[in-house]
């Protein structure tokens, strides 16, 4: 079985991840997803690509801890988190969070909580490559 939390270079399939989540329980009545993509424009600049860096090991541990905490905090059944660490082009997929619950409200709440905490707690950084040069991204609230 493919890990429910992954950091990988390769692209991912939203459909495959949703199907994998649905297969874990027939109690699931609602699935919320968050998909983060690479913008072609940021802070007033054109962006050609985004290069990601991670602290290998700690980043995946932090994602696993986030998933465990979400399962404890919210009335949800399962969650999957996939984050790419590579160089992506504008429009490419970066991060996917899929949350399944009996009802929609905890699924939405857990999905939002997970992406917010991921940005705060997981040691991953992105550098935007622009026609004028490159710059590390400062965190967004």
């Amino acid at each position: 079985m493919v890990n429910v939390v992954r950091i990988q270079e390769a692209d991912f399939s939203i459909e495959a991840e949703v199907d994998a989540l649905r297969a874990t329980s027939k109690r699931i009545g609602g699935i919320a997803t968050f998909l983060g993509c690479a913008r072609e424009f940021s802070e007033g600049r054109d962006v050609d690509s985004i290069a990601f860096e991670q602290y290998a090991g700690m980043a995946e541990q932090a994602l696993r801890a986030l998933r465990r905490e979400a399962l404890e905090r919210f009335d949800i059944i399962d969650a999957r988190i996939i984050h790419r660490v590579t160089t992506v082009q504008a429009g490419d997929q970066i991060v996917l969070i899929v949350v399944g619950a009996e009802h929609r409200k905890p699924a939405f709440a857990a999905c939002e909580w997970l992406i917010d905490r991921l940005k705060q707690r997981v040691p991953i950084w992105k550098k935007e490559i622009t026609p004028e040069g490159s710059a590390w991204v400062t965190p967004h609230p």
Binding site: Q54, M58, I115, P123, W125, W136, P139
Partner: peptide, 27 residues
């Protein structure tokens, strides 16, 4: 050793792996 530490008085020992990191910006 891959655990974030907020106490700057925390004692480091030989063999420790320490990471110095800017604020995270994943996602």
């Amino acid at each position: 050793n891959q655990v974030q530490i907020h106490d700057t008085d925390y004692l480091l020992h030989a063999g420790d792996e320490v990471a110095l990191m800017p604020p995270f910006s994943g996602g």
